[in-house]
Design a protein around this nucleic acid. Structure first.
Lengths: 182, 182
DNA sequence: ACCTGAACACCGTTCAAGT
DNA sequence: ACCTGAACACCGTTCAAGT
């Protein structure tokens, strides 16, 4: 079971979504394709298991990054960890945001936990009542940036790393600047 | 040929990417599937044609929105038009950012034209030398926001429209605040 | 010149049959 | 209880044959 998800995950990263076939997973686990259906309901379900594995790993990375003791630096560290995860497992990362209306979403609790660290940070920076929209600002920017990067959408040249640093700095300022006090 | 792309576009929006089959397009255009290969190189090529159609339409919408005469209001109007396009043609919108490393990118010239209006705006707001990173900040945020919205990723409740307005306001401020003068 | 039936190599999935 | 060969309904794509 664990081996199945691991094989699926590797097939996905190696050959993209259409490389994640039941055949490929069966070959990698030394079994025939029909046998997989004893462990997994369907290919779609298997993809969901890979996505769940990915969001757990991402959450761990983000939590580990948010430990500098300073909210602004935490936010920058979380953004950097977020981007690093997307670079390490681009196909799995894509999976997390590919949910179409018809599809079953990932476990809502895991989803909530994945943004807990960020919301704690934005709550500190922008105040509790602004924490949610501020977190959405940050994660929308971060997701947009890395997903464009992965899609090769930054074709106008320029330094992409510098654009990321500029973005982090501006997002931190934008969130801190939206606090009721300032 | 035009009818083929239109049929593909409708199949895509109606049934998602896996609904865009050569069979479906053939049925809709009153022909047998093999005949499509006289007009189109492959299914992948047909998808590219739909994506090209989408980026042209999006560019038209963005250009039409950026006509208020005020850079700040133009930026808000462009962001709103961008989001509206994604809501109207969600599957086509998804297509624009689904480019994996192996795939042929869309015509670079069309891509450049699609961001011309935005870069003019950010150039006004943040100065010419900051125009590109500022535009990337804006488009990354906007893309991230709408793609999360389309993926159903805003599951923590709250007012999504209000979060968008908050985001627009903060992004405008962040870009204007990064100008060398202020 | 244009269209198509038949065919090929793939998919995901089911299920009766084997151990 | 577990695995699998065979089969089914689909894909995308090719190509010889028909008009």
């Amino acid at each position: 079971m664990e081996r199945i998800v691991a094989a699926a995950r590797e097939a996905l990263e190696a050959d993209g979504p259409e490389g994640l076939t039941m055949q490929a997973v069966a070959d990698a686990t030394g079994v025939r394709a029909p046998s997989l259906y004893k462990r997994v309901r369907s290919r779609r379900d298997l993809i969901r298991l890979v996505a769940t594995d990915a969001i757990v790993a991402l959450t761990r990375d983000l939590d580990a990054a948010a430990t500098t003791g300073d909210a602004r630096r935490d936010l920058a560290a979380v953004a950097t960890a977020y981007r690093a995860f997307a670079h390490e497992r681009p196909e799995a990362y894509r999976l997390l945001f590919s949910g179409a209306p018809g599809e079953e979403p990932i476990d809502p609790e895991l989803n909530e936990r994945s943004s807990a660290a960020l919301i704690r940070i934005t709550s500190e920076l922008a105040g509790p009542e602004r924490a949610l929209p501020a977190a959405r600002l940050a994660v929308a920017w971060a997701h947009g940036f890395v997903s464009m990067e992965l899609a090769g959408a930054f074709r106008l040249g320029g330094d992409v790393d510098a654009a990321f640093d500029y973005g982090v700095e501006r997002i931190v300022a934008a969130i801190a600047g939206s606090a009721p006090a300032g």
